[in-house]
Structure formats: C-alpha cells, structure tokens
Design a protein around this nucleic acid. Structure first.
Lengths: 247, 247
DNA sequence: TCAAAAACAATCATAAACAATCATTTAACT
DNA sequence: AGTTAAATGATTGTTTATGATTGTTTTTGA
C-alpha cells in the first residue's frame, strides 16, 4: 500500500463520512498508528483535512475540491441535461457571463450558437471556451485555488465595466427560506454584481443543491430563474416564488 | 519487449488504476527494477505521469496542455532544464510575473520555494499554479484562443497596477540584429509593459528560437537576461551584448 | 478533582525504495 | 560485418517510509 493510496482512501472516506478515526483507519489500511498519524499530519499540512483528537475531520472546501476530480463522472448525465437546456437559451449576439464551478462547464460543452461573446471568472471555463473557439473575456484578479475561480476587488472592478444580456451562475445551496447561498463571501460578491449587471440571470444547479444552506447569501429565489433537473412535489412552495426550468 | 511497449503498458495501467507500483510493473513486464525506474523517470520527464515513492501516479493537469502538442521527449527535457534553472532564481517574498506559453509551464512545475506571489496572463499557467497551491493573480482581458493567453487593453490596464521583482517571459524569436520578436502586437505590448514594470526580466527560450525573426519587436537582447539550454560558438557575438544563463 | 485510559509527539532501528554507476547485452547504422 | 550507440541488469551507497518504543498530553468517568 503506497502512501498516496492511503491518502486517497482517507480523503475518500472523509468525503463520505465527514470524519475519520485513527483506529478505524489502522484496520482499514492495515498499518500502524504511527503511519496513520503521519498521513493525517501530511494531509493537514496540505490543507486537505483538519486533525482532531482521535482522527481528522473534513475541511470546508474539501467539498468542492474533491468533487473537481470525481464530479466529472458523478452527476454527468444530469449536468449535461442542465447544460443543454441552458445552452438553448443562448442566442446570437448575446454577451453572456458564465460563472466558475463545475456545473457551468456542461453549459459550455453544449454551446452551439455562433456570434456570441462570453465573459467568465473560471479558469477551466476559459480553457474550454478557447478550445471551442468562442470569443472570451476573462475576469482578472486573485485566483481561489480550490475552485480556480477569480475573485477579489480587481475582479469586481473589472466586472463593473460590463453589461450582460444573460448570466449563468452556479450555486452551492438553495433553500426556500434562505435563498441562494455559498461558502465564500468573495464569490458571493461576484455573483451579486453579475446579477445586477445582467438583463436576466439563470442559476444552473443540480438537485443536490436543494435544501442546502451555506455561509453567505447571494440573493433570493425570486431574483433569478433556476435551471435544474428534477423538481418534485416538495418544491411547490418554491415554484410559487420563482421560475424553474426543468431539464 | 521494446521500451515504447513498456511505456504503453505503464500508461495504460495508469489510466485504469490511477496508480502503479514499481514491484507490480517488474512482474508484469518481466524486467529489472532499474528498467522500471528508468521508464518512470522518462515518462515523468515527458509529463505523462508523476513519480511517487514506490511507483507513479497520474497527472491530472498539463496532460492535455503539453502532451497534445506532442513535444518530443528531448524538447521536454530541455524545457525542464530551463524551467529548473529559472525556478532556482525565485526567492521567498518574490512577486513574479510568469508569461503565457509552453516554456514557462516548466518553470512552474519546477517551482519549489514558498511565500511567493505569481501574476500571470496564461490560462494553463493559472491552472497549474492552482494545483501547486501557489497564490496567483490572473490578468483579465481578452483571451487569445490559440495560445490561451490574456491580451488586450484591459490586460494592459490591470498590469499597470503592479510591480514585479522578477519576470519570466517566453518568446518566439531571438536574433542578434532584430532582438526579441513575436508574431502578435498585443502580446508584444504585454511583454514590453512587464519588462518595464519588473526589477529584472528573464527570457526563457529553448535553442530553436535562436535566429528566428517575427513580426513585432519586443525589446533588444541587452534589455534582459536570457535563460536557454544550448549556447554554442555562434553566439559569441550575442554573449557580448547580453547575459545568457545556460541550463 | 483525580486517576486511568486513550491519544499524542518524538525518537530510533529496520526495511524498502531510491539515485548513481558500471559492465554487459542488445539494437542500429554504415 | 564491424563499429557505435542505446538499453539493460547488477551493484553500490543513500534516502525515505515504516513500526515499535518512549514519555507526555488530553480525554473520560468515577
């Protein structure tokens, strides 16, 4: 069992359970307490988890961080559906904003129409847009390392220069009571500004985001149109407040 | 069993499992530990995998960036050498600019020191920096689709805000008579501004750039320090005008 | 509050993996 | 065929990872 294999197992387990115990890892990985302890120490140093007495717990951004690797295979079908619906809204001559995050990548994949300009704050988004030969403007500023999103004051200042005909935003949580929320205040600031600068705004989010509440509020449900995949009866109350497009 | 056959087996196995062990490969390929180790070394140099203690693992990042442009392993080796020399110049507390282009990616790969800030105008650069957890500021503006470089007026305006202790630039051509040249006026404008804003500037370029002349002049040979790999007798005249670091 | 138990950090010896080198074999080219 | 270059496997000493041991700190519950 190689060091990196153990790391992978530990992080995977952490992703599911939110917490791991030293003893449990010893049995699972068939190695000594010292080794586990050293592993947790390394992983903590590289910011992947937080050590606690008896084991370790998940850190905030681990949620997003791990998903970058396996999310590509996880909700792929659903995201693809959402992306296609979102892409169908884009028309020639549109100037659209595309948010950072994994969900909006599916939108870019599905983009078909020509003669559009895209503005984005996501590095992977920019990369994909370049490969699809879509004229793109990237927002400058500080890069958030876990999500490869551009944030900060410089980004806000640059965004103020633009107006968009449509904006497509990702989100971490949406809830009837608390509206749209994300863990990062700086990302929330970007999203709020974009909503303000765009003629119409669409939140693209798969069903797992329903009912989740994060640290910072972005806006109310009724301020935007939601593009999601599965809306069951639970959302009748929500549907009265806002517009939902089902993919 | 030919060398390239082993490479294929190793990479194939890596694609499925994400990780390979030296011992396991020895049995699978019926060859000595030394050979496996050499194979892994070569494959790491050409950017196909990442060696770890006991074997190797997949590289998530510049897999697409470098390998699909099919650099020969020789060229990769040279760029790696140049990158390592360039990286050795970086010191803690530096604020450095890293230019877009493939050569500077090797520099980022080789970056070891902590407590630095990087400013870049390259999308692949930003992506790699994020994976290495290096604090990064990305220049915003229009994206040039062929090279994934950020250019244009917005980029220039943002750059004016910054000062750098060191800057590392790529280049398309360098010539005794015509100096440093690139095909794109907008890229040249960025490079010129960076040179002006940086305490010291290094051009990183492999030997193939010597004697080439492109459309737009960036600066004279004597304005910067050149980091390149092979300097033979032809360059005696050049060496009188400028500083050359040989990797 | 105090004592026992568990978890902890630090250290050490051992074993595995490592880089570097060399002689030998294999392939490639004239 | 004969020469040269490249690849291989064995050997060397070095580095790294590991598990056991030590004594200390934290948690627990009586």
């Amino acid at each position: 069992m190689l060091t990196d294999e153990r790391y992978a197992v530990i992080l995977d387990r952490l992703k599911d359970h939110g917490i791991v115990k030293t003893q449990e890892l010893m049995n699972l990985l068939h190695c000594s307490e010292s080794t586990i302890r050293r592993d947790l120490d390394s992983l903590e140093r590289s910011g992947k988890l937080k050590r606690i007495h008896g084991g370790a717990k998940r850190m905030y951004h681990l949620d997003e961080e791990l998903s970058n690797q396996d999310k590509t295979t996880k909700n792929v079908q659903e995201k693809s559906n959402i992306g296609q619906l979102a892409a169908s809204l884009v028309q020639p001559k549109d100037v659209i904003f595309i948010d950072a995050g994994t969900t909006t990548l599916a939108l870019i994949e599905a983009l078909k129409v020509g003669n559009i300009t895209v503005v984005t704050n996501g590095i992977p988004q920019a990369s994909l847009l370049a490969e699809k030969n879509i004229p793109t403007i990237l927002i400058g500023g500080s890069m958030k390392m876990t999500t490869k999103a551009i944030i900060g004051e410089t980004a806000v200042e640059q965004l103020k220069q633009y107006q968009f005909s449509k904006a497509f935003l990702g989100i971490n949580g949406m809830d009837l009571e608390f509206g749209f929320t994300t863990p990062d205040p700086e990302e929330a600031a970007i999203k709020r500004l974009v909503i303000q600068k765009s003629a119409s705004t669409y939140i693209v989010a798969d069903e797992t985001k329903w009912g989740k509440v994060n640290f910072v509020k972005v806006c109310n449900l009724e301020d935007v149109t939601i593009i999601t995949n599965k809306t069951n009866d639970d959302y009748t109350a929500i549907k009265e407040k806002t517009t939902i497009l089902e993919a």
